[in-house]
Computed example of a mutant assay.
Amino acid sequence: MNYLPDGAYRDAQSDSYDLVGRADDGSLIAYRKEDEDSRIAPTQWKIASHNASEHGSGLLEYFIPKRKFPFPKSLYAVEDALRFFVKEKPDAIILDFFSGSGTTAHSVMRLNRQDNGNRQCISVTNNEAGADEQASLRSKGLRPGDPKWEQWGICDYITKPRIAAAITGKTPEGKAIKGDYKFTDEFPMAEGFKENAEFFTLTYEAPVAVSHNLAFQRIAPLLWMRAGSEGRRIDDLPANGWDLADTYGLLVDLDRAAAFCDAAAAQPTLRIAYVVTDDDRRFQAVARALPDSVEPVRLYESYLSNFRFSMGR
């Protein structure tokens, strides 16, 4: 059992604090009256909902039955932690660079449901198979990159199926998920969420193919994500030289720049204009013709610059 120092205990019961209740372990929940709109996260929680065994491993079993993942976090612990930082930010973007079983993305869905938020979560993970699986797969003559190997990787076997199950309310086998969410927002897990998810596999593309506009379909999701991951995505090079989606546009044929810029000016939701050219002078001319609210981005300068940097050039 932990005890507050005498001074801190007296402060918590003074007129400077409001007592709002007790936690499950019996401890007082209090905050300064002048800070009513911003509570500070404690350095240690002892709350039943944060039990990783029950609400991490046990909960994962509901969504992807018989699939094991070591030490998943409690869904409600991650939800409570995120709430301190994004409660007042309904359009926040949360980056989870080691997403594991996908608990953070799942927690963001719950937060959005509670306040009709529009938060996004970008989950990044590799597709490494566990040590035991690797040994078994190698004994069968398989190697990383083989489809029968990749299907056992963490992303394909755990992360994506868990996120899909949370949204749809159905297990990978198509069965309605049994059980109810608890605590802050209680409802059947089978209801799912009014969310959507896109899954992408990052690949390495040769700079020559990129610079010659031969790898656009591979790069297309990145352009959509940079523009906010909203609305239609431009997956193919436009036949007429340019195209506008909901939040971004793509100009491939600079001889059509005038028509492209006119259309961009008439679309208030546009944020970014991607211009494919290796001519800086012409790119600058297009940039000047675009509305001030639209960010011009030159393709494929960033990718090729990164390549040269990584190669030490």
Rank of each mutant, 00 (worst) to 15 (best):
K89W: 06
A30Y: 14
R83L: 02
D146L: 12
P221G: 06
R138I: 09
L142H: 01
R298K: 15
D80G: 07
P65W: 11
Y31V: 00
F187P: 01
A285P: 00
A263E: 05
E195S: 14
T125E: 14
A258M: 08
N116W: 08
F98L: 12
R282E: 13
L111A: 10
A105Y: 04
T201V: 10
L290M: 04
L75G: 11
A265D: 09
P161W: 09
P291T: 00
K178E: 13
G102M: 12
N126L: 15
Q120M: 15
N116C: 11
I47P: 00
E198R: 02
N306C: 01
D235Q: 02
K175F: 06
A220D: 01
S123D: 05
E173F: 10
K178T: 13
A30R: 13
R308L: 09
S211A: 00
V124F: 04
L4P: 12
P268C: 03
P72I: 10
A227S: 06
F84M: 10
E128L: 15
G179P: 08
G231F: 01
G192V: 05
T43E: 14
V286M: 10
I219S: 03
D15V: 13
G153N: 07
F283M: 07
T104M: 10
A264N: 06
I163T: 09
V208A: 08
I64F: 03
N306V: 04
Y76F: 12
L19T: 04
Q151E: 15
D18F: 05
V208N: 10
V286A: 11
G249C: 07
V297L: 04
N118M: 13
K66Q: 14
K175V: 06
A92M: 07
E173Q: 15
E128M: 12
Q13A: 14
L214P: 00
G26F: 14
A135G: 14
A190N: 03
E128T: 00
L270A: 03
P207K: 09
R162Y: 05
K66E: 15
A48K: 11
D262N: 14
S302F: 14
P238H: 04
T184R: 13
R288N: 07
G231H: 15
F97T: 09
N306W: 11
Y248G: 03
E34C: 04
